[in-house]
C-alpha cells in the first residue's frame, strides 16, 4: 500500500533535487543544473533539452513511486494545457507535484 512518509512540499523538493543529481550525471559540466528553487528546468530561457527533459520527468515520476509508493502521471493533460508551464522551474514543479498529490488524495 501507499506510504505517505515525507509527502509534503519539502519531501517533494528533496525528490526533485535527487532527480537533478541523477540527470546531472548525464550532462556536461557547463550545463549541469543547480539544486535551487529558481533553477530553470525547461523553456526558452534555458534548462534541459527536450529529450533530457523527458528523461528528467520519467526519473522524477519513478522516484516519487519508489520513495513515496505513489503511482503518479506528471505529464497529464492538465499540466500540458496550462498557460504557464508547471515544469519551467524547480519551484513551479514542486508546487505542481504537491497539488497533484493533494488532488489524488495522497498529499
Amino acid at each position: 500500500m501507499s506510504s505517505k512518509i515525507g509527502v509534503d512540499r519539502q519531501g517533494i523538493l528533496q525528490a526533485i533535487f535527487a532527480t537533478i543529481d541523477e540527470i546531472n550525471e548525464t550532462l556536461p559540466d557547463n550545463r549541469k543544473l543547480e539544486k535551487s528553487a529558481e533553477t530553470r528546468l525547461f523553456g526558452r530561457q534555458g534548462g534541459l533539452e527536450s529529450l533530457e527533459f523527458v528523461n528528467f520527468i520519467v526519473l522524477l515520476e519513478q522516484r516519487i513511486g519508489d520513495e513515496f509508493g505513489l503511482a503518479v502521471t506528471l505529464a497529464d493533460e492538465k499540466a500540458i494545457s496550462r498557460e504557464s508551464s508547471p515544469f519551467s522551474t524547480v519551484e513551479r514543479l514542486s508546487d505542481y507535484v504537491t497539488e497533484l498529490l493533494k488532488d489524488s488524495g495522497n498529499g
Binding site: Q62, G65, D66, G69, A71, V72, T73
Partner: peptide, 14 residues
C-alpha cells in the same frame, strides 16, 4: 486502467 497499470509497474519496480 492507467492507475492500476502504473501501480503494477510500481510493484515490479519495488
Amino acid at each position: 486502467d492507467e492507475l492500476a497499470v502504473k501501480q503494477m509497474f510500481l510493484d515490479v519496480s519495488r
